[in-house]
Design a protein around this nucleic acid. Structure first.
Length: 570
RNA sequence: CGGGGUGUAGCUCAGUCUGGUAGAGCGCUGCCUUCGGGAGGCAGAGGCCGGAGGUUCGAGUCCUCUCACCCCGACCA
């Protein structure tokens, strides 16, 4: 491609509304433009990168035995009503009504549609297993889209679904897809980590997320520095670095804490560690057996409640901090809430299970209690793992040290089981001649998000630094000046490179050298091949990897050098 | 949905407090000079100051309403 034919408007200054590096660079380098909140145009350069990522995904999935198909974006409400998600999915599901007053939605994910398809044609166990995938635009009406391609409302996703005769075979395919995902992300040149994950609203019983490690990531993951354990903090379980004190049961005693309510302030006033305090939080529950009820949660003073864990533990759909009135009704005194004397159900973190000699609110103004013993004074508590993992925690598997890192979730695999196949009636006749329901797995990759995630990990001061495997062009052929000699040599090189199937962007613009170098670096092309009069006099050109040193080479050797650098990038 | 912020030239932004002819830099067009790291000169083009209503002799500026976008939070495969 000649630069003069390429639509790639680069910006000299940073766009005002982009704070995150990938968003900023993709806008500046002419890869994307915003249409409206969370919706982007993918310009030719952006599309090239996306296509390269798709190609790697296709190659690996096809090799793994999956088949590509394409499902519709507009889906009838009936399918979602059948699975039960029409009412459950919430406002992220963009619903529309057509001219016949028929309700539909834009697909945020395709479990219903694929089950409908498979249910229609599945007859026998002999047809199983099958693994079907598609790469397609998804729409989720996110409450707060942000960071460019990182969290859009419309985005490109690879979603795959597998169907099996039994859970054993599903487990096999789950592991197979897990390994395939690792190969895909490795080929993309990413520093990533697979972590155990909560199954969220998609449901199911086993799930891993794949995270690209980056400080701008929206997720927090906990991992062991000594073994393979890694999990999203929404799910991670780890032991406190310093267990809480047990034994030593002394009688409860009131202590005046006039106007002091915050954990750190109380700890300071009483000259104790924050871990010796118990925080009591009051929530209102939506969904599940406790629907509409108020509940109390106890957690160590220096721990944070992980709400997702609580939600899972009590099978709730949503949690909200209780209002002042609800707290009072439950017997709590705001600022001095403690487990004793509350009238609502009490849940506590397992770290507190045997803890004694604690300080807690007394449910009395300006008063705390000393020597609180959870087993003795909060005997009605139900214990669950509710605290969020912290750095320096103990690994549950090997006892090693836990560390935290930020991650961008770029893929997730779920063993769904029969959660969708039951209501969608995906049945077949098993080898004993009996009717059976298929079991299902689903596997997603955020393709457009990957574009952003790669930039987050591969950039420097000057711009993007694409891995060779996904770069929109592999070589930036930069012609310096307009002389006949350099133009002819460049044209010759351009033809050679193109014929050798090397994606080459020939900067044939009448621009000064600085402009060309800056644009090539901003765009992040992995190799620069520079043709200038200075070198050409001696039959030489320059080859420079995006982040490496430049090398003078013979014009005659340029093609073979490029072939080698493309095949074996630094 | 709560909190904060921004809308003026293609981009980045001044001008708004204190009402009085619409500005700068970069980019863009033409010409000249320059030609190895976002050059210099000259001449130009480009604006319903997000939108609607109001106050005023007069509104980018003041008032009311509204829309869009960004950030933090809540939420979220």
């Amino acid at each position: 491609m000649r630069f003069t034919n390429l639509f790639a408007p680069t910006l000299r200054q940073d766009p005002a509304d982009a704070d995150v590096v990938s968003h900023r660079l993709l806008l500046r380098a002419g890869y994307i433009r915003r249409v409206t909140s969370g919706v982007y145009d993918l310009l030719p350069l952006g599309l090239r990168v996306l296509r390269h990522i798709e190609t790697i995904i296709r190659q690996e999935l096809d090799a793994a035995g999956a088949q590509e198909l394409l499902l519709p974006m507009v889906q009838p409400a009936e399918l979602w009503q059948q699975s039960g998600r029409w009412d459950k999915y919430g406002r992220e599901l963009l619903r529309l009504v057509d001219r016949h007053d028929h309700a539909s939605c834009l697909g945020p994910t395709h479990e219903e549609v694929i089950c409908h398809l498979v249910a229609g044609d599945l007859r026998s166990w002999r047809q199983l297993p099958m693994n079907l995938y598609q790469i397609q635009a998804k729409f989720r009406d996110e409450v707060r889209p942000r960071f460019g391609l990182m969290r859009g409302r419309e985005f490109t996703m690879k979603d795959g679904y597998s169907f099996h005769a039994d859970d054993e075979d599903l487990a096999r395919e789950y592991d197979h897809m897990f390994a395939t995902y690792q190969r895909i992300f490795r080929r993309l040149g990413l520093n990533f980590r697979a972590v155990e994950a909560d199954t969220g609203s998609i449901g199911g019983n086993r799930s891993h997320e794949f995270h690209v490690l980056a400080d701008s990531g929206e997720d927090l993951i906990a991992y062991c520095t000594e073994c393979d354990y890694a999990a999203n903090v929404e799910k991670a379980i780890s032991g406190r670095a310093k267990p809480l004190a047990t034994g030593n049961e002394q009688p409860l005693a009131q202590v005046a804490t006039l106007g002091v309510t915050e954990v750190d302030a109380v700890a300071k006033l009483l000259d104790i560690a924050p871990s010796q305090l118990v925080k009591t939080l009051i929530y209102r529950v939506t969904g599940g057996e406790l629907d509409g009820k108020t509940i109390a949660i106890c957690i160590a003073g220096d721990d944070q409640l992980q709400e997702i864990k609580l939600q899972r533990a009590i099978h709730a759909e949503a949690l909200e901090m209780a209002s002042d009135a609800e707290i009072t009704e439950a017997g709590g005194v705001i600022g001095y809430i403690g487990p004793q004397g509350l009238t609502c159900p009490l849940f506590a973190d397992t770290a507190l299970q045997a803890a004694c000699d604690l300080i807690a609110g007394a449910n009395q103004n300006n008063t705390h209690l000393r020597h609180l013993s959870m087993p003795r004074d909060a005997a009605n508590a139900h214990y669950f793992e509710l605290r969020q993992s912290c750095a320096d925690d103990q690994c549950p598997h090997c006892g090693g040290t836990i560390a935290l890192a930020r991650g961008i979730e770029v893929g997730q695999v779920f063993a769904l089981g029969r959660q969708y196949t039951e209501p969608m009636e995906v049945g077949f006749q098993d080898r004993d001649g009996k009717r059976a329901t298929a079991t299902m797995g689903c596997y997603g990759i955020g393709v457009s998000r990957l574009v952003a995630a790669i930039v987050e990990q591969c950039h420097d001061e000057a711009g993007i630094c694409w891995p060779m495997a996904v770069a929109p062009f592999q070589v930036a052929l930069i012609t310096l000046g307009n002389g006949e000699m350099v133009t002819e040599a460049s044209a010759e090189l351009y033809q050679q490179l193109t014929e050798a199937n090397i994606d080459t962007l020939w900067d044939d613009r009448k621009e000064r050298p600085g402009v060309k170098f800056k644009d090539a670096e901003l765009m992040g092309l992995p190799l620069q091949l520079v043709v200038g009069e200075r070198g050409l006099k001696d039959g030489m050109v320059e080859l420079k990897p995006r982040q490496g040193e430049k090398q003078l080479i013979l014009l005659a050797d340029a093609l073979s050098h490029c072939l080698q650098s493309v095949a074996n990038p630094q």
